[in-house]
Design a binder for these strands. Sequence first.
DNA 1: GTAGCGTAGTTGAAGGCTTGACTATTCCGC
DNA 2: GCGGAATAGTCAAGCCTTCAACTACGCTAC
Lengths: 167, 167
Amino acid sequence: MTARVSVAPQDPVEFPGEPRWLDADEQRAWRAWLYSAQLLMDRLDRELTHETGISHAYYEILVALSETEGRMLRMSELADRCLSSRSRLSHAVSRLEERGWVRRQICPEDGRGQLAVLTDEGFAALEAAAPVHVGSVRAHLFDQLSPGQVEAMRDLGETLLRHLGPR
Amino acid sequence: MTARVSVAPQDPVEFPGEPRWLDADEQRAWRAWLYSAQLLMDRLDRELTHETGISHAYYEILVALSETEGRMLRMSELADRCLSSRSRLSHAVSRLEERGWVRRQICPEDGRGQLAVLTDEGFAALEAAAPVHVGSVRAHLFDQLSPGQVEAMRDLGETLLRHLGPR
DNA sequence: GTAGCGTAGTTGAAGGCTTGACTATTCCGC
DNA sequence: GCGGAATAGTCAAGCCTTCAACTACGCTAC
């Protein structure tokens, strides 16, 4: 993490000069954010996987598909929505195909493209998993926060998204 | 159904009946948090790995060791501080050992235990990486936020940690 | 029509992570 | 001391992700 190690006055190319180290308050804020984010994601993923056999990554794919007209999306569009690389998504869809939850279909408008289509079995699996996931998010996130904190969380997230966000 | 082996000393969550679904505001807050957290972590890890060849996971191990008296820790203590499983840490330390940055040492007080010790080379690698990491955290996090937002971030993180947190 | 380039998506190898089993050691009650 | 339970750590198998090719198609200009 942000160790306060002193460094020789030699300039690394991209980050020249002595960096502005984090002060004690920033340290504390950063660690609290990092630890809580890691623990929360880990917890949600574990509970979902354990109760339903669906990892959070797979869950996001199923959700993204279920929210579209026709329950289908181009592979790259799906990858973008899931914050996933093309390659990663391709592998993941292959594994979902093996489970019978998604199938591939050649895209009519663009011969290069593929459509990932959510099957009825896939939708049923999602329906079964959704209450578990919502339960976890409530228990470990919303039930722990005041309305003001929820508001702050949204504000924080949206501010960061404006900087990091999809282009 | 599932055996539900609870690893953490925490109540397993029950998911009875119809869940309390997220309303539109909660949805929005949740997605903003989730996406921003994923993007930020991904960004920090990528920049660090790209500039220094050290992944964020390895960086955390080096930092944890560097902050202790004697720059050494028991394997399990190190795993806890890095939010890592024992197995994962054991693998990671093996790879850090191959790089010459950490070495294992039998624990004098407990024959079962191992100490992970940060070498001088490891400390030097950390010194070189630290400015890069701090630069990323500043650029993508603190430079984007107002003082009030930083305060809110700390509050949020600490509130969640009280619920999820270690022991 | 075809050359050249950009885009969409897949693939395979390499390596990291997780799970569960396994060894070795210590602790504790007798 | 001794036997059983608990603890520390490692290891192997399998899954997942990444990276760097690679195939296939579309678009534009000549």
